[in-house]
Simulated scan of single mutants.
Amino acid sequence: MAARGLSHARDGRTVMQIGDWTLQTGCHALLLGPSGSGKTSFINIVTGLLTPTQGELWVAGEAMSRLPPAGRDALRRRTIGLVFQTLRLIPALSVADNLALAQRLALGTADHAEIARLIDRVGLAHRANARPRQLSQGEGQRAAIARALCTRPRLLVADEPTSALDNSNATRMIDLMFEAANATGATLLIATHDGRIAHRFANRLDLVAPMANAA
């Protein structure tokens, strides 16, 4: 993943300014910065949900920022696993069916044995048939992590993935994300304020609030 001259403005004001930054394939990085520094904007640009107003963002050798919306959607499905702060699980589907749908969209087929293994790995085997509304916040976050991993992504992007988890489960989920990424050579980018996991990352991208935002 690489940013080149990357910045983003909204209503004439710069809300994110990174410039040039590269995260080598298979490396893991922490995205840090105070409120207003553009972390969410950067994540949305990386995942193709937002087009930067200046510069380029490359993912898996393709210029995500140059692609039309349909092309960005296709690249995201093929290469990126997402864990949002808002879980975005489909309410009408069970945990297992949420994972199966994600696999079909990304890979063309569902591997039910792999889905069961991941659900068990995040400690939700007893909740595999539960709907999202039946899960606690922590359970929902673990289900969202399993859904992101089940597509075997080349890039895993997570926004505050451990914020609703206790110490034991936070460690367990970070271990799982590292394990899954290392097994496939995937790149891992995590945005967080969680000091419990910061020491696990050698690479950091520290964002600062652009001066244009100062009042």
Rank of each mutant, 00 (worst) to 15 (best):
R200G: 03
W21F: 15
V83H: 02
L124C: 02
W58V: 15
A146D: 07
N44H: 14
G48N: 10
L124T: 03
A183C: 09
A116E: 14
A116P: 02
G71Y: 11
L189C: 11
A215G: 10
N98F: 02
Q54L: 09
K39H: 02
V59A: 07
L93A: 07
S136L: 07
L124S: 03
A92S: 15
I145E: 00
S163E: 06
F178C: 02
N167V: 11
A106E: 01
T192C: 09
S35R: 10
P91W: 10
A96E: 13
D11Y: 05
A128P: 00
G138M: 05
I80F: 04
E114D: 12
A212Q: 14
I174C: 09
P34I: 11
G108S: 10
E160N: 04
L6R: 09
L205C: 04
K39L: 03
T162F: 02
Q17D: 14
I18C: 11
A3Y: 06
A113Y: 00
R10C: 08
P68T: 08
A96F: 09
A70K: 13
R147V: 07
N182Q: 15
A102R: 04
D120Y: 02
T187S: 15
L124Q: 03
L6W: 04
A74T: 13
A128G: 03
A144S: 11
E179S: 10
L75Q: 09
P52Y: 07
N167T: 14
A143C: 06
L49E: 08
N44L: 13
G55E: 04
G81I: 07
G195R: 15
T184L: 12
M211Y: 03
H126S: 13
L50R: 08
T14N: 05
I197A: 00
D111P: 05
H193I: 12
D120R: 15
I197C: 01
F42Y: 13
T171P: 00
A183W: 08
G185L: 10
V15D: 03
I197H: 02
I80E: 05
D206W: 06
R204G: 01
H126F: 10
R196N: 01
S41G: 05
Q85K: 06
L49P: 00
L30M: 09
R104F: 04
A209Q: 14
S37V: 10
F42S: 03
E114N: 10
L50V: 05
G81R: 05
A102P: 02
W21R: 08
L207A: 11
A183Q: 13
T14R: 15
T14M: 13
L207G: 08
E179V: 04
H126N: 12
A215L: 14
K39R: 09
N98L: 11
L99Q: 03
T40V: 07
S41M: 09
H126Q: 15
L189N: 05
R77E: 03
A2I: 15
I190L: 01
G71K: 10
A191R: 05
F42Q: 08
C27T: 14
I90M: 13
H193R: 11
A106R: 06
